[in-house]
């Protein structure tokens, strides 16, 4: 028991040291207030300043991680944190299959694995509000949701097959300098389980007070933002130990000094 905790801490120290250079590939996102698709009671949320990874975590990044953290290797990962599909496109504990490009985004990872990776680098997963805040930008505008072309482009990606096989950095970067928020893979977020959708979408506009406790309505603010609808639907259908072919992640870091 004690040895477990010790070894975990040791692993974290080691990988933090090794992956120190990773903080170079981040951009600063200036916080602000905005209205996301599913907001709070007053619908406006505030996002603080933070740094976000320019690219999603790649296969080769994750291969490095499992080398240093045997706990997260395919054969060692425990059932509490992963299911049978975890790293299913890897040929062994340390390497992905030859057909998988090393600079493509890592997929088939669970939320617990993604969280552990980010924490190992002294970072964390972005919250839904942070992710959506950066994702609503296009190449020139910070809030491009009113532009019809913005929505159309994203919706057309949702129909393009096998985009997870592409390498990172091929979609144009947005005004913040972040790549691949759209057009590559879905991404884990820290509080994806704050999306209280039952899957019965015709009822989801009605606060189902039996299944979900909520004295405020959890309604969508913009019924025409279909791209966002689909992202929230995916989040609502996931459980933390699932992995998916089209689901990866990236990390963010608070700008204030780390504490706790």
């Amino acid at each position: 028991m004690k040895t477990k905790v010790f070894s975990l801490l040791l692993i974290c120290f080691v990988c933090q040291y090794l992956t120190y250079g990773q903080t170079e590939d981040m951009v600063l996102i200036e916080g602000s207030r905005y209205i996301p698709l599913y907001g709070r009671d007053s619908t406006v949320v505030e996002v603080n300043d933070f740094k976000m990874d320019k690219y999603p975590v790649t296969v080769e990044d994750f291969e490095l991680f499992v080398k240093e953290s045997p706990k997260w290797r395919k054969s060692n990962a425990i059932k509490l944190f992963t299911d049978k599909t975890y790293l299913s496109n890897w040929k062994n504990d340390l390497e992905s299959k030859d057909s998988v490009k090393s600079k493509s985004p890592i997929t088939y990872v669970s939320w617990f694995a993604a969280k552990a990776y980010c924490e190992c680098q002294n970072k964390r997963l972005p919250t839904v509000d942070e992710w959506e805040y950066v994702a609503m930008a296009d190449e020139t505008t910070k809030d491009a949701r009113i532009k019809p072309t913005y929505n159309e482009q994203i919706l057309s990606w949702y129909e393009a097959p096998r985009t997870n096989e592409n390498i990172i950095g091929e979609t144009p970067k947005n005004v913040w300098g972040v790549y691949d928020l759209h057009g590559l893979v879905w991404e884990w977020t820290l509080d994806f389980n704050s999306v209280l959708i039952t899957g019965e979408s015709r009822k989801d506009v009605d606060k189902d007070s039996n299944l979900f406790c909520g004295s405020a309505a959890v309604n969508a603010t913009d019924l025409m933002n279909y791209a966002a609808f689909m992202r929230y639907a995916i989040r609502g259908s996931l459980k933390a130990k699932y992995s998916m072919k089209n689901l990866g992640f990236r990390c963010v870091q608070d700008v204030k000094t780390e504490s706790e």
Binding site: T198, E200, R202, I234, L238, Y242, M244, N246
Partner: peptide
């Protein structure tokens, strides 16, 4: 929901 509530399923 005609089954919709109980059949919401993610890929895979």
């Amino acid at each position: 929901g005609g089954g919709a509530e109980s059949s919401f399923v993610a890929p895979g």
